[in-house]
Nucleic acid binder design. Structure first.
Lengths: 191, 191
DNA sequence: ACCTGAACACCGTTCAAGT
DNA sequence: ACCTGAACACCGTTCAAGT
């Protein structure tokens, strides 16, 4: 069954984000790609930012699924690496979309997006929690630990996407994430 | 002695970034603030992005000084917290400017910026190195460790500036940085 | 309910002149 | 060397109609 016009607009915006970044996503270009007039999008979205919000919501739902799918079966440490790899893979293949979801301060914070983002965070949190159970990560508050792990992952990704990694002296997002996991496994909390 | 027109343009762009973000920095608004015609900026900068690059370079130099200034005297752990606090303070007070320096993929990577950014990174790295000497941070490759620490700090800052922290479950950049430092102090490398 | 075409205000950038 | 004013192409958004 074919996509509705609204879905086509979201898909077109996603494609334009991938090929030309935020500035390439003009409502005129989106409309032309779908084959409607330059202001037809206003029948489906309040404005440009609402269209971008719809792209973000769809991708948050995808990411939650990707994390859940790759965080099962294998042991906890492998699941953590797989979940991280999913985020990194998405970020590298869809740079402007990753930044839209996790960095853009202008992203409209509607309830649909908040729920989808929260669900993705919780999926990541479940993997962190399993690692704590297997002694791979320290036994501290799971939410705070997830925020720490994801802050590091996001920081490494964002610096890389912004081209700040080579300038600063090192590359590879995975290397930074692996170093964090390596060190956290060796934390002795003391009693 | 008064600022040259070029310096006034950089100052005006910085002020507009603080008050209205990237989108508020139109060359027309910048020019009007300085009191010149709407295309006078082209006599001093190749285009809009060159003006923003000049803002970034000036701020990288400021940050390097702030880190050096607050990373002396006191013991290494205090210096690390002070250097981090300087970055956080700058990020919160000048959100759009922080994002311009550390996130924007469109920032023109001229040699002046690269050098200024590298100098700021090295200032931070010296503080990390001192912490290693005092046993506060693990004795691994200093550059890799600095990249890890700064990735976490940047990730926490960027998620906060983007409004993604409260959605995800927690706040406070300092809390995340402190947790990292707390855990890294308890790493047992084994021999 | 969904789409179209004209129009408005705004922007980056260029160009021909001015001093 | 530095600045100005007119002009161009492009954009988000609105509005009055069309089916």
């Amino acid at each position: 069954m074919p996509e509705t016009t609204k879905e086509q607009l979201i898909t077109a915006a996603s494609t334009l984000l991938d090929s030309g970044g935020q500035e390439a996503v003009t409502l005129r270009a989106v409309a032309e790609r779908v084959g409607v007039s330059h202001n037809a999008p206003y029948r489906h979205f309040r404005d440009r930012s609402a269209l971008l919000a719809a792209v973000a919501e769809r991708d948050f739902i995808y990411l939650r699924g990707a994390i859940d799918r790759h965080g099962e079966g294998s042991d906890a440490e492998v699941a953590l690496r797989n979940a991280s790899a999913q985020m990194i893979d998405y970020a590298l293949k869809h740079q402007a979309r990753y930044r839209l979801l996790f960095s853009d301060p202008d992203l409209s914070p509607g309830p649909g997006i908040k729920d989808a983002a929260k669900a993705a965070f919780q999926a990541f949190s479940r993997v962190v929690s399993r690692c704590q159970g297997e002694g791979v990560l320290p036994e501290i508050d799971t939410v705070r630990l997830t925020v720490l792990v994801y802050s590091t992952l996001h920081g490494a990704i964002d610096l890389e996407l912004g081209g700040r990694s080579t300038e600063s002296g090192l590359g590879s997002i995975e290397a930074t994430a692996d170093l964090l996991f390596h060190l956290l496994r060796r934390v002795e909390l003391g009693e």
